[in-house]
Structures are given as structure tokens and as C-alpha cells.
């Protein structure tokens, strides 16, 4: 379905969105900066905590910073590109979602591109800076495999976050009042992945490994990059989970698109 022509159209829709935002240049800059500051607060917390302790859940500051940076970059990519689906509830309430349905393109694609949010890129800069600093600071023997794993982690992480975003936004097809439930999973999910999952209790760890696959965003692939204990020793999971993020990402996409389609069908049959 997605051919070169379609991508070109989406590019133009994104361009239109960016031009709209630039119409209010001063306020755009203000929001970019404040978004940067707000997301930076999460890292400030980590930094403050590490002034009091040397290790958190067995991890050093630089290691947690790497996890934070990799997850943050992945999240901001997902947030920028697909986070616009958050507006589904608002669109349905205003009745402007229908406009998307009378056009000859995918509803999801249009929503994401029309609500593309360049200002959310503030987090990319902030998390990117932390990531670069962390890569320099972590005490690890760099091998080709480890080096390659960093971009793979980020790409797979972005896809997993994106899938969670789409799946939770689709809740709005059932109820438009529970948008914040989605936030608990998207922003909450991001917040959660910033820390090594060893600090969580067993049930939460299992939930993250097997249900909402947040552990595959940062923690498992980071074990490999950081050269830490293999997951088999802690969780009884085979070492292959460290390399499974791309597969999990593909599966997450399939599940998310199924949920979206069911939701859209429901919307079209209830129209409310």
C-alpha cells in the first residue's frame, strides 16, 4: 500500500504542519525550549538521586544515563512521528476526525502527519546529549556488535513506543474521556524504561517483559551493550532476549495495528 507517491504526500502533510507551527515563531521557540526543560527534569531527578547513592539497582550513573539516553531518543522519535495520534480523542469530540475519513488515504497516516509535532523534538536534543555523554562515560570495551546494537536499540525502541502509542490512542474509539489512560502507558512507559527494571518488583518486571514489552525498549538490549550479566542469571530468560528487540517491535506493530483496525471499525459502526 505505501508506495513512493504516498510517502511524498505524507511528507507534504508534515511540511504543512511545520509551516503552520512556524507561523507562530516566537511561541514555537518558547515551547521548544520549555519542552526541553520539562523533559530534562527526568534526568535531573536521576542526577540528584546519584548524588546520594553510588549505584541504583546495581547500575552506575553512566549506565543509567545510557539507558535514559537511548530510551529518550527512541521515545522522542516515536513521539514526534506518531504522537499525533494522541489528538484522536480531541478530533472525535470536535468531529474533525471525519474529515480524515473522507480522504483517499489511511486514517492513521493522516492523523500522525497532520498532527506531526516538531516542537516535541526538544526532547530529542536533550536525550541525545545525555546519550552521547553516556556513551563516552560508560566503562565498556567497544566491539562492532556493541556499537551496532546502539542504533538497533533506538530504532526498535522507537517502533515499540510507537506501537504502544497507536494502541493506547485507539482507546478513544471506545471512549473519548480516557485519554489520560493512554498517557499512563506512553509517558509512564517512557518514565519506567529509564531505570533498570531490576528495581521493580517481580510482577511489574514480568508485565514489562511479556505484556507491554517495555523491557525490550531499553533494558534487555542495554544488558548486551553495557556488558552486564546475562538475563538468564536474573530472570531465567535465554540470552537471546538481548537481541530480540526488532522481533518484538514487529510483533508490537502487528498487535497495535490490529487494535487500531478494530477500533476504527467500531467507530464506523457507532459513529460516536
Amino acid at each position: 500500500m505505501v508506495d513512493v507517491g504516498t510517502i511524498a504526500v505524507y511528507r507534504r502533510l508534515i511540511g504543512a504542519r511545520v509551516r503552520s507551527d512556524f507561523g507562530f515563531r516566537a511561541s514555537f521557540a518558547f515551547r521548544l525550549v520549555s519542552a526541553c526543560v520539562i523533559t530534562g527534569l527526568d534526568f535531573a531527578v536521576i542526577a540528584v538521586v546519584f548524588t546520594k547513592i553510588g549505584r541504583l539497582g546495581g547500575w552506575r550513573f553512566s549506565e543509567v544515563a545510557y539507558l535514559y539516553g537511548a530510551c529518550g531518543v527512541a521515545f522522542s522519535v516515536a513521539e514526534t512521528w506518531i504522537g499525533g495520534v494522541d489528538y484522536l480523542a480531541v478530533r472525535i469530540k470536535q468531529g474533525t476526525f471525519d474529515r480524515v475519513l473522507v480522504r483517499p488515504m489511511s486514517a492513521l497516516g493522516q492523523l500522525a502527519t497532520e498532527e506531526f509535532a516538531l516542537r516535541r523534538i526538544g526532547k530529542l536534543f536533550q536525550a541525545g546529549a545525555v546519550l552521547v555523554a553516556a556513551l563516552v562515560a560508560i566503562p565498556v570495551q567497544w566491539t562492532t556488535g556493541r556499537i551496532l546494537m546502539v542504533p538497533v536499540t533506538i530504532a526498535a525502541g522507537a517502533v515499540i513506543y510507537g506501537a504502544v502509542w497507536v494502541a493506547t490512542a485507539a482507546i478513544s474509539f471506545w471512549t473519548v474521556d480516557a485519554n489520560e489512560l493512554g498517557n499512563a502507558l506512553t509517558y509512564g512507559g517512557n518514565y519506567l524504561t529509564q531505570y533498570p527494571i531490576t528495581i521493580y518488583s517481580a510482577w511489574l518486571r514480568r508485565l514489562l517483559a511479556f505484556v507491554v514489552p517495555m523491557a525490550f525498549v531499553g533494558y534487555f538490549p542495554s544488558l548486551y551493550v553495557l556488558g552486564r550479566t546475562a538475563p538468564s542469571e536474573r530472570f531465567g530468560l535465554p540470552s537471546v532476549v538481548m537481541f530480540s528487540s526488532p522481533v518484538v517491535a514487529a510483533a508490537a506493530c502487528a498487535v497495535a495495528s490490529a487494535i487500531w483496525r478494530v477500533g476504527l471499525r467500531r467507530y464506523r459502526s457507532t459513529g460516536s
Partner: peptide, 21 residues
């Protein structure tokens, strides 16, 4: 309800950080 759920989720995450500290 959704908001209370979100607050609770964030509370738990922060609580586990504190437990680790």
C-alpha cells in the same frame, strides 16, 4: 478514573526508585 490510574502508575514507578535508593 483514567487520571487517577495514571497518578497511581507514576506513584508506583517513583516508589520503586525510592525502594532502590
Amino acid at each position: 478514573l483514567a487520571g487517577a490510574f495514571t497518578n497511581t502508575v507514576f506513584g508506583f514507578i517513583q516508589a520503586y526508585v525510592m525502594v532502590a535508593v
